[in-house]
Design a protein around this nucleic acid. Sequence first.
RNA 1: GCUGCCGUAGCUCAGUGGUAGAGCACCCCCUUGGUAAGGGGGAGGUCGUAAGUUCAAUCCUUACCGGCAGCACCA
Length: 634
Amino acid sequence: MLDGSRREFADPVTGAELAAAIGPGLAKAAVAVKIDGRPRDLATLIDHDAAVAIITRDMPEGVEILRHDAAHVMAEAVKELYPETQVTFGPATETGFYYDFARATPFTPDDLERIEERMRDIVRRDEPINREVWDRDKAVAFFDRIGERYKAEYIGEIPPEQEISLYRQGNFVDLCVGPHLPSTGRLGQAFKLMNVAGAYWRGDPNKAQLQRVYGTAWPNQKELDQYLFRLEEAERRDHRRLGRELDLFHLQEEAVGSIFWHPKGWKLFRIIEDYMRRRLDAAGYQEVKGPQLLDRSLWETTGHWENFRENMFIAESRDEKILALKPMNCPGHVLIFRNRLRSYRELPLRLAEFGSCHRNEPSGALHGIMRVRAFTQDDAHIFCTADQVTLEAIAFCELLLSIYRDFGFADVAIKFADRPPHRTGSDEVWDRAEHDLKAAVEAAGLSYTVNPGEGAFYGPKLEFVLRDALGRDWQCGTLQLDFNMPERLGATYVGEDGGRHVPVMLHRAILGSFERFIGILIEHYAGNLPLWLAPVQAVVASITEEASPYAEEVARELTAAGLRAIADPGNEKISYKVREHSLAKVPLILAVGRREAEQRTISLRRLGSPAQEALALGEAIARLKVEAVPPGCA
RNA sequence: GCUGCCGUAGCUCAGUGGUAGAGCACCCCCUUGGUAAGGGGGAGGUCGUAAGUUCAAUCCUUACCGGCAGCACCA
């Protein structure tokens, strides 16, 4: 058993009987049973000595089974309401489930309501769910006969050694490996249909487009409510909304996929850029700036023309040369590297650029400032010898984690992405690159998971994923090992032996794209940026007009001390000003009235707290100046 | 790019086959108020764009543009 104990039975028992033998509470919470590590239906007969664990509805595996059942119940409801619809796949997801349906007319929101209502009926009916093992040909014939072409097609692709299992609940029969709940009633009512969208059959844009209905499902109502609340919270934090409300940026159709940065948004951008520049300088990088437009021939050499032609912006010069707006910075950096003869003594050479790139992303991919067509990378390329890769990778990981911490992200996961199907370079080169990169991250003492086939076309990569305040994951940083491009572009250095060698190139970014990272920061902090990042750190608000000259003076002194401060001398009540600047998420409000002006003090109020603190002007400035210093900049 | 939905004032949204409305924001005036909305007045819209149907289109139809959700994509 899970707790290490043993239980003996004279005759084989089912998972359900076992759970009941242990206790009625467990029997009720049980959704499936794990036999020798394999999840099975509760009705499965345990006929040998086995390692058995009861899966309950509150365990992650149990929730997954619930969600999978919810998908089946939805399919049953759809088949009852719209018998002409064909079913395809319906798996569990991170927060719920979906099912892809094939039908001529799309579902409407009204249809969703009807389907959800019918699902609730099916749960109330408490239909038994039974597993049946079928002969392969009979199963194909069966699904063909009932008009489920997708199911019939899919059976043909199931490996021959695998059993063909069908699950029956009420009049609904679905091809499925399971496991499933014993009956539909066990699902409970803590689910909700969310939306409809298109999805391709087998994820292939060349195949039929299906109607995907998304739902969410949880072990109980409380968790469902919490989830729905989290969705609302995410909406409140949406960077597109906050970007407008805080007057940071806007987007409009004359520049689809590009950002109009307003003064406050651009200030934030520059604060981050200045911070990154300090960190990179300190870490031994040298900043460069490459050209925006580069000749087509260069992109042909790098392989981008072949691989990403559709996604590049093309321009023509007056002498009819074809140029492309750079979609990435690395070729420029290689050209800087190979502009003159390099010695091994110069390695590792770390060239950094706040590189402005353009990629003609498909219109459906665009999303606020997170996915745009014009963006800025905190990009750098490290040219080094094969022997230096490990130390460089370790140093990079440390720099990255330290920078993430400064921005308030402590929870970082690492993924190792190996060779993709479509790639350049020989298998020998890939073997070595993958081996070296893995060795480096292991040497750095970091753990990682593997992301198969997700590497760049020129080399494997490490992906750094940070988790935000809402528990969402964002892949930002990357470290890519490239044995290919330096060779393609003819970069060499003179080694200790006097011979020419091709350097290894590490592509690396920490924030990824400034635009996207700023979007993440806004959502992570719900717009309440920490003092060092806030575009406006302090507002000095006068309480009466008499005190306005003093408010202006205080703002000037704060500015002189290096703080981003403005005065609000306007003709409004102090409560109005407090509200206005609080909504604008200004971290510090310094209120000054007649009393403060006479005594040369201020009344300090911090965002998120109604508390007030009376301070002498000099002391306030001294303290706030220290507080506002960016991290790593003492 | 694909599927579906959406597009009315700066924002959030009403509304109608007979040339448009609210609240907030904005501007002006009154008010000088001690920590999350003081009062009054004013200005503001080619109803996404273009065709079509109609005596008449913001409203109906079509196409295009843009947005949203998901899919696909993400060097």
